[in-house]
Write a protein that binds this DNA or RNA. Structure first.
Lengths: 333, 333
DNA sequence: TTGAAAGCGCTAACAC
DNA sequence: GTGTTAGCGCTTTCAA
């Protein structure tokens, strides 16, 4: 293991051929290479443990076989499955993925995108930080394809979207609650600035309206367990009467359940709970959480498919995919 | 946004300076550059929206400012926090991180390491797939620094380790159980091939011995929720009498709790449960899980520190860090 | 079927 | 303070 790496030049020298020949063999562009030379070269490569320098080849081919994954936070239970889906498909196509956590900060997002552009990634898969983007100037400068996953925003270089039909999912969920007999369904929503949350709220309202239910109550908060607890506290303090809660995501739902249990409310007898997302924890808590499950792994996988498709074919027409949610009835409803 | 990227040459041309000057300014090596030229150049860069091509500079500096993170599975709740810790420190030092999932397969691990070497990453942080590594030949060829996290194996290029004192943590945990008055503590262990599991089993045995407790029962399984359920079933079928279970990780503990609850055992009254890891879910389930918490975020963060230190200083002496666990008593014990 | 040579975009001596 | 120039390791015409 010498300190100086062996290069394509060395291989060419040892094998008594040109670097062009070696290059063709490495890259399977060896339609015009005789069996003998190929084997000879392959042997030398093996013998000297030659590792091609992909930086160098990227410099000329302008392809790095690397993509960026820009998400709010990998330690938020919603994202690991998406990341895994992305990585699985990317890897199967020979790509590697650089993961970036924005914490929903637009500044961090821009910093990361700039960095990814300097590193010449072939494309980016992103769950955008905000619904609205003020800094249009910045986005105009992006010159690599972007595929949006989970959250939709309106920027130029977006070549595809992999979203979930939040409206439909929430509508079906709330309708189910109504059919089950719940009369006073309140909603603990996420931040209105996220359009996932917006769609779910709209669906909730629509479902109530379509079923001629007057009672409507939305409390806006955050996508967190703490907000679930806090929201229930608020409801209780204000003496709002309710027999069910539709939560904008599972974390909120879990918080709500904890709080409800701590004041001795029985679930689902006193209060029925429906979440949204289908994170792993929901199967484990007691009572198990009924939820509207998003196909997270598939979202990641599909977005990698779309992106790599765009990279390869260089298609300009957007490819948008909408995946369906699945209503999963467990014990909380 | 022209299709042809603007290069350092263009900037030099427009600013009427040499590429060397531009390069120095970009890289803050501008001690010998006049204010005027610097500002002029910076303006041109801004105006033409110049983005330096880091592939090209990496080719000459031999530094990519990228590291690899090789772990079993990002969607296993144990790893996202580690990943976040790694990414946070790496990013603060200007590095980006490529994430690879091995599913504990040695073949995948080797494939990924090869790929990372081709991409010329500056180093690798890895939770190795197996305790023993047969393919010594492969590891000998690795010529970039590796820092091990969580699991220790014995290979050449390891420049540091960030581990947790599994023995001490488990020993303290089991001792606590004994002091609490539990007499018949069984252990649901993980796979013996993992040395994390091995250490915890040894500590369990030692703690029993040191407290003169004869009853000892270890059942070997896997690090999974399913195994927790199954393990309890086995224990019950075989009519093993026990009043507490020490589980080799939290997933096992959660499975055990679910199974115990389903046969109407009360926790901790009938059976006390202690887990290991401190994953998020443990705070949420009912009863909340007592556990030996590993500092996962810190493990990731520290391992990035060690690796980047090695990369910068090029130190050859290994740096090993052992972090302490924390016994967290909640409701299951 | 193979090779010569130009060049990808940048850095780092070294010269001025 | 600033510029010249020789590569870094590879791919890709084009010619032989």
């Amino acid at each position: 293991m010498s300190k100086n790496k062996v290069t394509i030049k060395d291989i060419a020298l040892y094998a008594q051929v040109s670097t062009a020949t070696v290059s063709k063999i490495i890259n399977n562009k060896d339609t015009n290479i005789s069996k003998e030379t190929r084997e000879k070269v392959l042997n030398i490569i093996e013998k000297y443990n030659y590792i091609p320098n992909r930086m160098a080849s990227s410099l000329v081919t302008k392809k790095t076989k690397t993509i960026g994954l820009v998400i709010p936070d990998i330690s938020n239970p919603f994202f690991p499955e998406i990341a895994r889906g992305v990585e699985d498909h990317a890897n199967s196509e020979g790509y590697s993925v650089i993961v970036c956590n924005t914490d929903n900060s637009v500044e961090k997002e821009e910093k990361y995108i700039s960095m990814l552009m300097e590193k010449m990634v072939d494309g980016i898969i992103m769950t955008a930080a905000e619904k609205e983007n003020e800094n249009i100037d910045f986005y105009k400068r992006i010159d690599i394809p972007i595929v949006l996953v989970d959250r939709d925003i309106n920027i130029d270089m977006v070549k595809g979207r992999v979203l979930v039909d939040n409206f439909k999912g929430a509508y079906n969920g709330v309708s189910y609650m109504i059919h089950k007999g719940y009369k006073k369904i309140v909603m603990l929503s996420g931040p209105e600035s996220k359009n996932t949350s917006y769609d779910r709220v709209e669906a909730y309202k629509q479902a109530l309206k379509d079923h001629n239910i007057q009672f409507e109550c939305v409390v806006e908060g955050k996508y967190s367990l703490e907000w679930g607890k806090e929201g229930v506290k608020k409801l209780l303090e204000k003496n709002v009467e309710f027999d069910a809660i539709f939560c904008a995501n599972d974390l909120i739902a879990i918080g709500a359940i904890k709080e409800l249990k701590s004041v001795k409310k029985s679930i689902p007898k006193d209060v029925g709970i429906l979440g949204f997302d289908g994170i792993y924890i929901g199967e484990i808590i007691d009572p198990t959480l009924s939820t509207i499950k998003q196909p997270n792994y598939m979202m990641g996988y599909k977005s990698a498919e779309v992106l790599i498709d765009v990279i390869n074919k260089n298609t300009t027409n957007n490819k948008d995919i909408t995946l369906d949610t699945e209503l999963i009835i467990r014990d909380s409803l």
